[in-house]
């Protein structure tokens, strides 16, 4: 009887979920820390350039792009996006179980798989919009500031990296989003897995190349336009594997995401409402 799947219907439903969820994601009070994390680098770069303009401090600009790359890889990717993804994506299902409101979603005439996709996309859309804007603004500010310094010659080349930074940001949201959506669905108390993932993504730099392929940060870092030589407590940090070329790491990351989403869909099909004691 059913020869073709009702893709059109599903697309409409996903859109409906997006409409409802997206507004909620943006307006929630818990989203404020996410905004702060996303736009903090922008504010700081603004201040950096202001300090220079006012002449309180001089800056040759030669280090700026390197500092930007360091801040981006260590702070934006590993901390800001990571923790925001934890907050937003774990809330999508696990939070609803804790609040005992998940059944309201399950009582709607929507396939559970569609529900997963809709909710995931709503989280991703919010993260990409917020962090994409944050990254673009901060990068533009940093590069703009270079025009006032001795290093103004590098500006055109640097501008070419803007889409790369924004792209990497978007991929990070995609990847971490899927990771934490699944963690939130699979575990009753996801804090231990969350800490485990945090540690895993942090120690991954020390591990052999084969294992690196199972982390999100690995793909992201090989995509970053400026490689940062880590200094400080770990000379060990310099053992980087051959960075994977973009034509492999982008599909790699997307495949990882799709696999995780499929896992989430499988899990939620079987899910029963039983709000135990948390």
């Amino acid at each position: 009887m059913k020869t073709s799947l009702p893709w059109k219907l599903w697309a409409r439903q996903v859109m409906a979920i997006l409409r409802i969820e997206l507004a909620k994601n943006f307006k929630r009070k818990r989203a404020i820390p996410v905004y702060v994390l996303a736009f903090l680098p922008f504010l700081l770069w603004q201040t950096h350039s202001l300090v220079h303009i006012r002449g309180w401090r001089t800056c040759s600009g030669s280090e700026d792009l390197m500092v930007y790359a360091g801040v981006f890889q260590v702070f934006v990717l590993r901390l800001a996006i990571f923790f925001s993804a934890v907050a937003i994506f774990m809330n999508l299902f696990r939070g609803k179980i804790v609040e005992k409101t998940l059944h309201y979603y399950f009582l709607a005439p929507v396939r559970r798989e569609v529900l997963v996709v809709g909710k995931y996309l709503s989280g991703v859309a919010m993260m990409v919009i917020v962090f994409g804007a944050g990254t673009a603004l901060s990068y533009l500010t940093a590069v703009n500031h270079l025009k006032l310094t001795a290093s103004r010659a590098v500006v055109p080349a640097a501008m070419a990296d803007l889409p790369v930074y924004v792209g990497v940001t978007a991929l990070a949201c995609l990847g971490y989003g899927a990771v934490f959506l699944v963690t939130g669905l699979l575990f009753r108390n996801p804090i231990v897995p969350a800490v485990a993932i945090l540690s895993w993504e942090s120690i991954i730099v020390f591990l052999p190349a084969v294992l690196k392929k199972f982390s999100v940060i690995f793909y992201l870092e090989s995509l970053c336009p400026v490689k940062v030589p880590f200094h400080g407590p770990g000379l060990l940090f310099t053992i980087t594997a051959e960075p994977t070329p973009a034509y492999l790491s982008v599909p790699g990351l997307i495949l990882l995401t799709l696999a995780l989403l499929a896992l989430a869909a499988l899990r939620i099909r079987k899910m029963e409402i039983s709000y135990g004691t948390e």
Binding site: P33, W45, H48, V51, L79, F83
Partner: peptide
Amino acid sequence: ILILAIFFVVAGIGSVLNEVL
């Protein structure tokens, strides 16, 4: 997560402040 974030993220914000400014 907030307790972890206070330690790691806020510390991270601190280092970013130090580096950028």
